[in-house]
Simulated scan of single mutants.
Amino acid sequence: LMATRVYDQEVYYRSIDVLIVRLRRKLGQDKAPRPQYIRTEREGYVFDSVVNIEELRTRRG
């Protein structure tokens, strides 16, 4: 959380929630009933996506 701060600002309890909301907006997932990439868990958030290594290698060329 401290790494996300550009300036010396106070970190609030809900700061990470605000950052997740902004990230979901950028991914176009903010209104999805079941977000595809960032799943909310009881303890926090989980990155949840299938990554196809072979597809990534062919994109790089």
Rank of each mutant, 00 (worst) to 15 (best):
Y37M: 10
E41H: 12
E10L: 13
E10N: 12
Y45I: 13
V51E: 03
K26W: 08
Y7F: 04
R24P: 03
V46L: 14
Q29H: 03
Y37D: 04
R39Q: 13
R59Y: 09
I53L: 13
D48C: 12
K31N: 14
S49D: 02
D30Y: 02
R25C: 12
F47W: 11
M2S: 10
M2G: 02
L1Q: 12
V6N: 07
E41D: 12
R59E: 09
T40N: 02
R60K: 08
T4W: 01
G61P: 00
M2A: 10
S15P: 00
L27G: 07
A3C: 12
S49N: 02
P33D: 03
R22Y: 05
K31P: 00
R24T: 03
I16F: 10
I16G: 01
I20K: 02
Y13T: 09
V11I: 14
V50M: 04
R57D: 04
L23P: 00
F47K: 05
V6K: 10
G61N: 05
P35T: 11
I38L: 15
D48H: 11
E43G: 05
V6C: 05
R25D: 02
A32F: 04
E43L: 10
D17E: 14
Q29C: 03
E54T: 06
I20Y: 00
R5M: 08
T58Y: 11
V21G: 03
T58F: 06
Y12S: 06
D48I: 02
Y45T: 04
E55H: 11
L23H: 01
D30R: 02
I38R: 01
E55S: 12
D8K: 14
S49E: 04
R60H: 04
F47E: 03
R59P: 00
S49F: 06
V50A: 07
V18G: 03
P35S: 09
R22K: 13
Q36Y: 06
R14H: 10
V50D: 04
R14C: 07
D8H: 14
A3I: 07
V18Q: 05
T40R: 14
G61A: 10
G61H: 03
R42C: 03
Q9C: 07
L56W: 10
L23D: 00
R5W: 07
R34V: 13
R14S: 09
Y12T: 06
P33W: 00
Y37V: 09
Y7E: 07
V21Y: 03
R5Q: 08
V51I: 15
S15L: 02
V51S: 05
N52W: 06
P33N: 01
V11L: 13
Y7V: 06
V6A: 07
E43Q: 11
G28I: 02
E41V: 15
L56S: 10
A32W: 00
E43D: 12
Y37T: 11
F47Y: 13
Q29F: 00
R34Q: 08
R25N: 08
V18E: 05
K26G: 15
L23A: 15
N52R: 12
K31C: 06
R60L: 15
D30M: 01
E55R: 13
Y37G: 00
P35K: 05
R24S: 09
D30V: 02
A32H: 13
V51P: 01
L19A: 13
F47G: 08
E10M: 10
L56H: 13
I16M: 12
R34T: 11
V6F: 06
